[in-house]
Simulated scan of single mutants.
Amino acid sequence: MDVFGSVADQYETARPGYPPELADAITDYHGGTPSRVVEVGAGTGKGTEVLVTLAAPLTCIEPDPRMASRLTDKFPQAHVLLSTFEQWRPPPEGVALLACAMAWHWLEPATRNAKARAALTAGGTLALFGHRYGYADPDQATAIHTMLDTLDPTAKERPADWMYHDVIAAGEFTDVHVKRFRRKLPLTRDEYLALVSTFGPFLARPPQLQRQGLDALGRLVDDFGGTITLDLLTTLTLGRAA
């Protein structure tokens, strides 16, 4: 997850936050305020913005010191632990709620569900949430996807509900279900390019390919009048530790 440290400031300003309704959905599922919350891969705190409203003691695990620094400045009430999820040792009594926003795919696939289950108290809640960046205008969607496929045909996008299916397949949790929240988000050319510049697949590409991609996307946005409207789908996967 430390790939994002080099763009920590841009990540904080360009990435959209989460709908506040997530907090109510988590509380309702859990059956009240959790006694303790741990957030995995907290980054600069986009998911933390939701979790602090639960008004429970909060520990945020983040492996990149640059992201963790932003997190500490923004949420002084949270305990920020510089660590990976795999290195983290949960308290012996367990935690009531384990949450992860847009970072589940960075955790070790073979062990993430089992480790999450082991960290929770009996009846504890797993809450995974993240965005799927679609496009409200079908013409914009087709043009952007065609251009991106031309630049890098190997790039693949996960299904919107992939975290739900991942938890189901692992078999570690009961009462697993998914909630969806949708909103339209218009972005200017600069806002859209700043957002794209924080995506993991983009950051993993060579600088020359990054520049080519941003130039091509910029021209597309200009052709569409200078604005891109995202169809922002937020999914919340909830599971219970038996």
Rank of each mutant, 00 (worst) to 15 (best):
M67H: 02
F75K: 02
V80Y: 07
K74G: 01
M102D: 11
P76R: 10
Q77C: 08
V80H: 08
E62Q: 13
E93G: 06
E62N: 10
Q87M: 12
F85C: 05
A55C: 10
W104E: 15
A103W: 01
V95D: 08
P90T: 03
L71F: 05
A96W: 04
A78T: 13
A103T: 01
R70W: 09
P57I: 02
L71C: 07
P63T: 07
F75N: 02
L54G: 03
L58T: 12
T84V: 04
W88G: 01
L81R: 15
L71M: 09
C60I: 10
S83L: 02
A99D: 10
A56S: 08
L82W: 15
R70A: 03
M67D: 05
F75G: 05
H79Y: 11
C100E: 00
D64M: 01
K74P: 06
T84R: 07
G94V: 00
E86T: 02
A101D: 00
W104G: 12
A96L: 10
V52Q: 06
I61Q: 04
D73G: 14
G94F: 04
V52W: 06
P57W: 05
T53C: 06
P65A: 12
A78D: 11
V52C: 06
R66N: 03
T84Y: 09
V52L: 11
L51V: 05
A103H: 13
L97T: 03
E86Q: 08
A56T: 07
E93Q: 13
P91A: 12
R66L: 06
V80I: 10
P63S: 05
L98R: 14
S83H: 01
Q87K: 12
P92Y: 06
L97K: 02
A103R: 09
R70L: 11
A68C: 13
A99V: 11
S69M: 09
R70E: 08
T72K: 13
A56Q: 12
P91H: 09
E93S: 00
S83I: 00
C60M: 15
Q77V: 04
